[in-house]
Design a protein around this nucleic acid. Structure first.
Lengths: 200, 200
DNA sequence: TTATTTTATTAAACTGGTTTAATAAGTTTC
DNA sequence: GAAACTTATTAAACCAGTTTAATAAAATAA
């Protein structure tokens, strides 16, 4: 059961990589060989502040949220769900201790590749280097839309936009994390929800 | 005069590229050969909404600001100054018309390389592909710190942080653009400045 | 140098959020 | 299935920003 799930996960990961650029079959299989599976239980933490971040991750199943504690407050930056790559990129790139948490909001399966294995492969293979560039570009685009959303729009519009774009999130993640993601208090979000429900 | 300035600019660009990764001399010179110089006068526009974005740019001298019109309001996302790469990445990547302006806030010199020339070179050279990946990674890191700043901190803290990190900006760019960058009205920023000057 | 235009400040009324605290509803756990 | 805990809503007082409009200061053009 777990093994057949793993096979499925790796097949998805393979397709994900191929969606960026062509990679020769053996090279890709060799790359996949570096990944190790990590099961993260609901509420468990993958990375905490002070830790070094040595892996790049892929979510096969579940949801990891990325947040920081700011004067005791959770500030959620992003939610990572099925079929996406993530890590704490600042700590990963600079090789300094993390300032963030990466925590599972539900039972989650991720696959992790060591930075050293990844970088060595990039150095050896142009195809993999290209995959690296294009996936980094995608990460940029994703965070860019976040900046756009944050700097434009009202809180209400941003909430409605989130409802539309990622309706699953509001089912699977507690509302106070959504509030934090939108830069609000739970009370503030509740007021917005009320305002919306009245005006319809 | 202009020619010797151009030689200086290209030398800086060369060093900038080499700061990311090793690139063979001829390859690098070939790459540099693709760039064309563009002089942008204060207030002139490099890109406007509706235009396609076919170039990746490098600022040799001056300042370009990146903004959007939102219900008639300028919303500034970033300022690009000496020795940095920029473009309207969403439009550049997706090859769709831009939603943004790129405008010079002072007389500015940029160098531009065509996307097709860049991509072809990436395809042919592993070294250049690597440069592409690492510069994209740096762009990610830069925008990430912006998200951090936007989602954490109060407006006052964010203003003080900007003062500290980029003191040049407040000299060379009008205050209402700084206000927009911080997500404030000019009036709001003025109040914050007053509050700060009183409390000291 | 003066005239014109652009940029920055101030004031006053307003608004969408915050904080704190109490209550209600939903989930876990045993 | 009751007890304990977590999450969401509501209310009231408060506050950091907004809008609009008037004025002052600075930069640019003639």
């Amino acid at each position: 059961m777990t093994v057949s799930a793993t096979i499925d996960h790796l097949k998805n990961l393979k397709n994900k990589i191929l969606s960026y650029t062509e990679v020769d079959e053996d090279l890709l299989n060799h790359w996949l060989g570096y990944y190790k599976r990590i099961d993260v239980k609901k509420g468990d933490t993958l990375i905490s502040p002070g830790q070094m971040v040595e892996h790049f991750y892929y979510v096969a199943k579940g949801c990891i949220y990325y947040y920081k504690l700011e004067e005791g407050e959770q500030k959620v930056l992003e939610f990572y769900t099925e079929d996406i790559f993530f890590t704490d990129l600042p700590a990963y790139v600079k090789e300094t201790p993390s300032d963030y948490y990466l925590k599972a909001s539900e039972n989650t399966v991720v696959y992790a590749i060591l930075k050293t294995d990844g970088e060595n492969s990039f150095k050896k293979s142009h195809q993999l280097e290209r995959f690296g560039r294009l996936s980094m570009q995608e990460a940029f685009m994703k965070i860019f839309t976040r900046v756009e959303r944050l700097s434009n729009r009202t809180n209400e519009e941003r909430y409605l936009r989130l409802l539309e774009k990622r309706p699953d999130l509001l089912q699977r993640v507690p509302q106070y994390l959504i509030a934090s993601y939108l830069g609000l208090t739970p009370v503030g979000l509740s007021k917005i929800r009320k305002r919306i429900s009245i005006s319809q």
